[in-house]
Every structure is written in structure tokens, then in C-alpha cells.
């Protein structure tokens, strides 16, 4: 069980980690995945491929409705009703999601792959205090006893930089702010030490400073816990800040894919160019200069 502590944000750039000589097996591989809606027989995701090794981060950008969330839910094996993966395959830690049993999927989720989403309040049970919901994961997935699980949950709350974790432990979701809730959700997601964390619009709807803190936290987790990240956002800046590789999606299609720097500096597709130019006035320059080669 890894307990990581907060280190001051290092200046190690993501590319350095990716370039580190250890050639690792991918923890997540997505190959030409297509998602189809059964109701009107339409394809909502039209061929997404990427690989993720430990400590690496892949970003997915694209306008709202472009199929980012469906891609994530396909990877987690939790597509909404009437949606299915129509072709392609997904391997999580070597397990094929399509042929995995329900038990296997339950085992994988939480302890190998986990996720946080937008609107964190809605992802917590309103009838249970937030702490016990984290302790529950620890108890079920790691087999800890009640008291130990509780202690671990408080540790996790501290680890996601929540002040006064003991108090937060016994609060209900409605008593916490959006930023705190997202931290709680991240704590719950990493409670069983997964190797992959999907952050689907995890910072959308948070105000800018809180957003920056959450992104720092994710970067922190990646560096110190070796977590592989899938970062989804409609905001190019968010993805640029965290990821080694970027997928640009539009209407279910991946229109551009490549190392972050390349996509930002030499965008091939006009849609990517549009996204970048839209962002110029929001200070994307900063990231370009900081993370540029």
C-alpha cells in the first residue's frame, strides 16, 4: 500500500518520464474502439486507439458531445444502456474487457482502473457520509478491517490535501464545496491503489484556482504513485498541462493524435488549429513556452 506524501511540484516535465528507458508493458491498450448506439444504430465513437504505460498520461480533447465520455465508459465497461462496443478491443492490465466476466470486471475496477467525473457531488451517495464511502472501498478491495479502513480513509483524505480530514470524513456531500468534493472523489478512486485513473472533465465547472490545484494533485499522483492517467477535457489547456499524448476528437472521430508538443506546435488538422487559436487568448502560450522542447 503506497502512502504518498505531498512533495512540492517538481519541474520534471512529463516528456522526461515518458522517455525514461524502462520499456513498460501497457496497462491500458485501446485498439480501434467503436461505440454504437443500439436505439438508432448510430456510431458515436468511430475508432479510438491509444496505449498507456505506467506513469504516462494520455489526453482526450474535443467539443462537448464528441464521444469522449463514451470512450471512457467503454474502457471502464460501464457504457450506458443501449450502447455497446461494436468493434475493436480494450485491454486493462492484459484483461480483455469484452470477454471478461462480471466478477473480473468488478475486480479490475477500483484496484486496477478507476475514474472521476465532472459534477463530483452527484458521484457520492447523498445518504452516507463521504468518509465511510472511501473506507468502504478500502475494506472491500483491500480487505482491511473496519478501524484500519477508517484510518486509511482519513489518510487518503489528507493525501488529497484536504484540510481537517477527520472532519471531512464525517461530512455529507452536500456539506462540501466542489473542489473538496473532487478531492474526496479522487481519494475514493485511488483508495484501492489503481494503476490507471480516468479523469473525465474532472476540473470542469471548478473555478480556475481550484482547477489548478486539482491538476497539480493529479500530476502529483502520477509522479509519486506511478498512476497512469487518461485526462479528458474540452479544454486544451488542461490536457496540455498534464499529458504526453493527445487525442483530438470530433463527432466521434479522432481527427488528430500525437505527442502533446507536436500536436500543439504542428497541428495537422484544421479543427486542432481552431482549438488552439481559440485558446490563444486564454494563456495557452504559457504552457507552450513552459513545456516546449
Amino acid at each position: 500500500m503506497t502512502t504518498f506524501t505531498k512533495t512540492s511540484p517538481t519541474e520534471t516535465s512529463p516528456t522526461e518520464i515518458a522517455a525514461s528507458p524502462t520499456t513498460l508493458d501497457p496497462v491500458l491498450s485501446v485498439r480501434d474502439v467503436r461505440v454504437r448506439g443500439q436505439v438508432d444504430d448510430r456510431e458515436f465513437v468511430k475508432g479510438v486507439s491509444f496505449e498507456l504505460t505506467p506513469g504516462k498520461a494520455v489526453g482526450i480533447v474535443g467539443e462537448s458531445g464528441s464521444g469522449k465520455t463514451l470512450t471512457c465508459r467503454a474502457v471502464l465497461g460501464v457504457l450506458p444502456e443501449h450502447f455497446e462496443v461494436s468493434s475493436g478491443d480494450i485491454h486493462v492490465a492484459g484483461v480483455d474487457i469484452a470477454s471478461a466476466t462480471r466478477e473480473q470486471l468488478t475486480d479490475l475496477r477500483g484496484s486496477t482502473i478507476s475514474a472521476v467525473f465532472q459534477d463530483p457531488a452527484s458521484y457520492l451517495n447523498p445518504s452516507i457520509q463521504v468518509g465511510p464511502q472511501i473506507a468502504e472501498v478500502v475494506r472491500v478491495k483491500k480487505g482491511l478491517k473496519r478501524r484500519a479502513a477508517r484510518r486509511r480513509a482519513v489518510e487518503l483524505l489528507a493525501a488529497v490535501h484536504l484540510r481537517d480530514p477527520e472532519l471531512v470524513y464525517s461530512q455529507y456531500a452536500y456539506e462540501l464545496s466542489g473542489g473538496m468534493l473532487q478531492r474526496v472523489l479522487i481519494a475514493a478512486a485511488i483508495a484501492a491503489d489503481p494503476r490507471i485513473l480516468i479523469a473525465d472533465e474532472a476540473t470542469t465547472a471548478l473555478d480556475v484556482t481550484v482547477q489548478a490545484e486539482i491538476l497539480d494533485l493529479l500530476a502529483d499522483l502520477r509522479e509519486n504513485a506511478g498512476l497512469a492517467l487518461v485526462v479528458v477535457s474540452h479544454d486544451l489547456a488542461v490536457v496540455a498541462q498534464l499529458c504526453d499524448e493527445v487525442l483530438v476528437m470530433r463527432e466521434g472521430e479522432v481527427v488528430e493524435q500525437g505527442p502533446t508538443a507536436r500536436v500543439l506546435y504542428e497541428p495537422q488538422h484544421e479543427y486542432t488549429r481552431l482549438l488552439i487559436s481559440e485558446h490563444e487568448q486564454y494563456g495557452l502560450e504559457k504552457f507552450l513556452t513552459r513545456e516546449g522542447p
Binding site: 460501464v78 444502456e81 443501449h82
Partner: peptide, 14 residues
Amino acid sequence: KVRANQAAAAGGTA
């Protein structure tokens, strides 16, 4: 069409 969408939206987890 609306009905189809509602059916889809009604879905919880797969």
C-alpha cells in the same frame, strides 16, 4: 425519436 432518446437516457449502468 424522442422515445428512443428517452429509452437511451433511462439507462443506468450497462
